[in-house]
Design a protein around this nucleic acid. Sequence first.
DNA 1: CCCCGGCAAATTGTATACAATCTTTTCCTT
DNA 2: AAGGAAAAGATTGTATACAATTTGCCGGGG
Lengths: 223, 223
Amino acid sequence: MTDALKSTRSLNVTEALRELLLQGEFDPGTRLQETWLAERMQVSRTPIREALRVLAKDGLLEYAPNKGYSVRRFSLEDIVSAFRVRSVLEGLGCRLIAERGLSEALRATLQSTLQSGENLLQSGQLERGEFDEWREMNKAFHLAILLETHNELLVRFAKQSRNIPIVFNGSFRWYSLREFQRAHDHHQVIFDAMNNQQAERADFMMQEHVMHAAHILKKNYKD
Amino acid sequence: MTDALKSTRSLNVTEALRELLLQGEFDPGTRLQETWLAERMQVSRTPIREALRVLAKDGLLEYAPNKGYSVRRFSLEDIVSAFRVRSVLEGLGCRLIAERGLSEALRATLQSTLQSGENLLQSGQLERGEFDEWREMNKAFHLAILLETHNELLVRFAKQSRNIPIVFNGSFRWYSLREFQRAHDHHQVIFDAMNNQQAERADFMMQEHVMHAAHILKKNYKD
DNA sequence: CCCCGGCAAATTGTATACAATCTTTTCCTT
DNA sequence: AAGGAAAAGATTGTATACAATTTGCCGGGG
């Protein structure tokens, strides 16, 4: 079997820190000192430094030579801008899939996620705290489309455009049942469009879908 | 004045190495050993390692834990895929500008680059080796549009999607006078569309423009 | 001849020591 | 008291030493 579980402290620290940042553990503007982090993470400064550099490149931290790193502040405008970028990226993904036609594997995967969505809506449990299943279903739907494009850069950028604290978990906490239903409808239409090789329609609806999420966030986000 | 010229060895090495990779100095698949690089660059392994990690994140190198870094191989398909992504990103840039209307500053900048293009075409010098002016003009045109969107992620992704060895310098070496004229025509139409707030047209034409460059590269690229 | 265990060399990962830079405090001058 | 040079402290940048892991080689067993 493959030894994909092998890793290094540097990589582990990078992901641990990224998680903390995405969960909003540190206030924006906070300076992250290497020695302090090193002590907290129980490693030396070396892996810490490598992690910080990567996270800065990901846009989660700001860096100034000889000054160090600080937690980036995301304005509402930054976040909406990121959604707009993601919308055209995922829209392109749908377009590419629709143009070449759905593979059997992808059709099966997407139908499965649609069924999951249906079940979740039927159960009526979506008003309480168990958004996790929905989150998982949603992620599976979007990721399956992206991966099927076999466009590595597209996948990378689409993933990266979600590396923003408030956005990362999906902003489902604002969703009413009505909103979940609408999202599910979007998914169905997007699937139908791709399934019928309607590239323009698939692209457009995916953009609509993503920007609607941005719209909801915009309405509820207080900065 | 600002001290933007301050830097560190780590940053310098990163950019120097990036330049070497973009110029195709190393064959794809080549393993880049830290000690070897350190000796060549006259620094210790520490800044080398930080540079390698960043360049791997940029997609120029491949990395495996405890194995090291090697120069990534870009297939023709990889390159065309990157163009497709860039086309929708820059298309979105044009759309955003067109929707809100051209600022005076941007109108002036773009008209200036168009005039430069006009002059270069008139001089008829474009068949020989001095593509540099054209390259500069082209870069100014595309970058001015991107920056005016004030969408940081859009700018970052669009720039990053050009960080590919063959692509980076622009593939103007394949261009005939006819191709330069066509590119110039595209620029003019894109400007006109934005100037008349024709968002859809501006977006579409920019995509056309970028993908035509991909088309030319595809015809001439031998792998 | 192949295989494979294990030792040796090479290479990467991590910690730490030292250098350079920035920040803060002190204290002198005006 | 205000200003500012200069020293002290803190923090980042770099080099190097050491640890862990991988790679290559050698020899023995099948």
